[in-house]
């Protein structure tokens, strides 16, 4: 039982951070039909900015550092949208992939100049860096923080999409941008907003996970493949599907390690293939997008 609880919480916290990154990517894809390979870079920038703001101290500063890092990443996203991504809307996906991969390279090299090549860490405030015991299982409090932030992000997104006029426009853009534009909606401004929100989510995820990882170059690369896979098995453009998919990936990972350790790393990819073979448009995707 104790072991089971540890696995469950670990899996949820893993899936939670994955969801936050992937939700931003799927939102951007849904509204703009742009696939952004530099999304992992935004996540990495969130983490690096966090190390800069928190510095050696912790405490209250930790929390506003998350907010500040995320907002700056959102601003960076807005700049990316205005400078480059805007011109990719409506282009072939291959063009988008190459262009955003170029952005990925530029951002990676820039990060190397800004933060160096060594690993950095962030210490969470003592209030959340300890552990608690349930049913004999010793669990990190910070796992609950990650899960909590992920749930909050999920609810926030849901509220934004379902209960605001901006959300209505975004959903309309997902369905049919032409109709929306002829209805007098400024698509450019909407796209800018959506891209910034997507970047914000990546920034939050990057900043929030810092106490559990080492922040170093290469973070961008290691997250982007998994994120792409989560987004695709969730169904491109579907935020709910992304949440489900993050869980599927997390569970596949954990089950793999328990069932067949020497094959563990293959389980995640097998899960992706299985889902797509059974449901070629992802869990909650719509055909012909």
């Amino acid at each position: 039982m104790a072991r089971f609880l540890i696995e469950v919480i670990g899996t949820l916290s893993d899936a939670g951070s994955l969801f936050m990154v992937a939700a931003g990517l799927t939102l951007i894809f849904g509204a703009m039909r742009v696939i952004n390979l530099a999304h992992g870079s935004l996540y990495m920038y969130g983490a690096f900015l966090m190390t800069t703001f928190v510095g050696a101290s912790s405490g209250l500063r930790f929390w506003w550092s998350i907010a500040l890092a995320a907002v700056i990443v959102a601003a960076l996203g807005a700049v990316m949208e205005l400078g480059i991504v805007r011109f990719l809307v409506g282009k072939e996906p291959l063009t988008q992939l190459v262009a955003t991969f170029a952005l990925f390279l530029i951002l990676a090299d820039t990060a190397l100049h800004l933060w160096g090549n060594g690993a950095r860490t962030v210490v969470a405030p003592s209030s959340v860096s300890g552990r608690f015991t349930i049913a004999g299982a010793v669990l990190p409090v910070y796992d609950l923080v990650i899960i909590g932030v992920a749930v909050a992000v999920g609810i926030g997104l849901w509220a934004l999409l379902r209960h605001t006029s901006v959300g209505w426009r975004i959903r309309a853009a997902v369905d049919d941008p032409e109709v929306l534009e002829s209805g007098g909606v400024n698509l450019r401004r909407l796209n800018l907003g959506v891209f910034a929100v997507g970047a914000l989510l990546a920034g939050i995820a990057g900043a929030v996970v810092t106490p559990q990882v080492s922040v170093a170059p290469g973070m961008d690369e290691s997250i982007i493949v998994t994120t792409l896979l989560v987004v695709v098995i969730g169904g491109l453009g579907s935020v709910t599907g992304t949440a489900l998919a993050a869980l599927v990936i997390g569970i596949a990972d954990t089950v793999g390690t328990l069932v067949a350790p020497t094959w563990a790393s293959t389980f995640m990819y097998l899960a992706v293939i299985l889902v797509l073979v059974v449901r070629p448009w992802g869990l909650l995707g719509t055909p012909e997008r």
């Binding site: 996906p93 493949v225 792409l228 896979l229 695709v232 990819y269 797509l276 070629p280 448009w281 995707g285």
Partner: peptide, 20 residues
């Protein structure tokens, strides 16, 4: 069985599967 971006990413999964 899949198409377009889904095809691109299922083949990417094959790539990573083979690699691991």
């Amino acid at each position: 069985r899949t198409r377009r971006l889904y095809f691109a990413l299922i083949t990417l999964a094959f790539s990573q599967l083979g690699y691991t």
